[in-house]
Amino acid sequence: MNRSGIVGYGTSVPRMRIKVGEIAKVWGKDGERVSSGLGIIEKSVPALDEDSATLAVEAARVAVEAGKINPQKIGAVFVGSESKPYAVKPTATVVAQAVGASVHMTAADLEFACKAGTAAIQACMGMVASGMIEYGLAIGSDTAQGKPGDALEYSAGGGAAAYVIGKPAESIAVIEDTYSFTTDTPDFWRRQHEEFPEHGGRFTAEPAYFKHVVSATRGLLEKTGMKIGDFDFVVFHQPNGKFPGRAAKILGVPDEKIKQGLITPILGNTYSASSMVGLASVLDVAKAGERILMTSYGSGAGSDSFWFTVTDKIEEEGRRQPESVFEMLKDKVNVDYATYAKHRRKIKSL
């Protein structure tokens, strides 16, 4: 396989947070039980003037800067999201213009529930490896919706992660291989014109998340001849704080290898950005030669699994994002349910 790699990366998260306990209080639930059951302490709350386009732009600007590339050489911009500001009109064009890309490029928005961002990475990989483009920008960005009172409301957060994909020689992490596992499984969806998504409750676990995450990860190992123990860091899609740990147990990954990439407990589920923010957190600390395995999951359903090998370019000045994911998450302000309801326009008149 002609290879490609991550040349630059960046993440962006809203500043506001709401504690799971604060949401539980409104619906008459035991906050501590809900919080420990989901493994989520708090989630991010996008402000009135934030949406998946603004978060995507912020992440993309960091990625382009850390990649030290000329944005005019970007040949493709793909934004994966399930919370687009426009139903029809691409977010990718907003991002392309804002990062200073040229007009001589292709762009599109992708949708595959929580894995559209990793599908964007794969699209860029193919275009870079085939020589169609020099750099591709792959973004996962969401301001996830959760129906008031629904289980999803405790986890649906907002955030974005952006990756500049380019040639291996310029990369801070080479993408050695990828493998996808896809079936038609209706575990979570949002129908046309509906405001909030619906889900199959417990059906979202075994036949959906675990089947796809485990199958894609095992598929990648089989395809590459690698063993799970060969990887220094493992990142899974994280709809809550518990599922990645269970997937790790099934696959024989010790907890300490998933810790660095497990962000949902303090950020919430950022949907298309979820596993990609986790990967960014790993790149914040990874050293040359270390191997990273990432497996995304998108309801509907499918998983993309990747093997990255970190190169010595990561040690060069300014090649990591200037502020690590964990550092970025320290800058926060916790809000009450009323403020959250206003900013997420959950009040009927808004």
Partner: peptide, 23 residues
């Protein structure tokens, strides 16, 4: 700008890092 110094701090690893042998 919250803290100009903190804004350029590299990440610190969380949890114990593994020391698996390289292939």
């Amino acid at each position: 700008v919250r803290n100009a110094a903190a804004a350029s701090k590299p990440g610190k690893p969380v949890g114990k890092q593994s020391t698996s042998s390289k292939k």
